[in-house]
Design a protein around this nucleic acid. Structure first.
Lengths: 152, 152
DNA sequence: ATGAGTGCAAAGGCTTTGCATTAGG
DNA sequence: CCTAATGCAAAGCCTTTGCACTCAT
């Protein structure tokens, strides 16, 4: 796989995203930079509405388009939550590998990490089992579904 | 947890779904029974469009409403795939615990199971880690994202 | 200059809802 | 009988697209 950056600093993150966006033949504008900053500052995937709200003055359509462009560039990923809103977060190799806690009551999504040992063993076992099915695994998504601390 | 049924036969499945739907104060009509049969006969979650297509003569709105009712009754669950279509499958305790292989190219979702040993260790480790975050886990969703045999 | 990016508003497309009718218990 | 279920069509709502203008290179 890609031996790229692991949870880079804010400046490095910005540079790396710029590199990817430019490599995709697009520009890394102030708006896109702002969106990356917003995503980087969140500890969970944000809905498009949340990004719009936090970007102050950015048109909704631009948010959608920018997220789409940066998704194609491999800088951000779309995340499925407990409701019908598209959520976005930085790509895994930019934000670090993590999982999600999804609350069935309020629909919110929180980031979550498991001990590296568990992660490593899991990954090995999964890749093997999937290969038997002719499937080539890029990455795994592990969501824990239940009740968050506030909704219990 | 719930010491309920484990992958029941077609008839048992039908009875169990009926029980849940009735317990939720709803009727288990022929249409609902048909939808359950369709889901039970698939080896992967189906989009609402697929359910409509396979149900022959059932109104789209009825499919949506029935799936929604049966979801509330705990008989089926909505699954997030690689595209923007809602997919449904039988509840985990009716169809058996499994995971999904999601193809990034064609968006399709396939069922997938991992060795029970891996599953058990995973579950134990996860429940513990999540509890530290104040989160109560009902179930976990593990998706392997990559390329299916046909899209490689 | 030259094409990408942006805003605004309109259009799309999956999903939901209103309402009159039919059917289940 | 009474209430839930169903069909059809209209409405909703998140998301995408068209178009003219602006900005970056």
């Amino acid at each position: 796989m890609d031996p790229a950056t692991l949870t880079p600093s804010a400046a490095d993150l910005d540079l790396e995203v710029r590199r990817r966006v430019v490599a995709a033949g697009q520009r890394y504008t102030a708006n896109r930079q702002a969106i990356v900053g917003i995503l980087a500052g969140a500890d969970r995937p944000l809905t498009t509405a949340e990004v719009v709200a936090r970007s102050e003055g950015l048109a909704q359509s631009s948010v959608y388009r920018n997220l789409s462009v940066m998704e194609s560039a491999g800088a951000v990923v779309r995340v499925a939550g407990g409701d019908d809103f598209a959520r976005y977060e930085l790509a895994e190799d930019l934000a670090g590998h993590h999982h999600h806690l999804i609350c069935t009551r309020c629909g919110q999504v929180e980031d979550f990490t498991v001990p590296t040992g568990v992660e490593a063993r899991l990954e090995a076992a999964l890749g093997e089992a999937a290969a038997d099915a002719g499937f080539e695994v890029d990455l795994h998504r592990l969501d824990l579904v239940g009740r968050c601390a506030e909704c219990r």
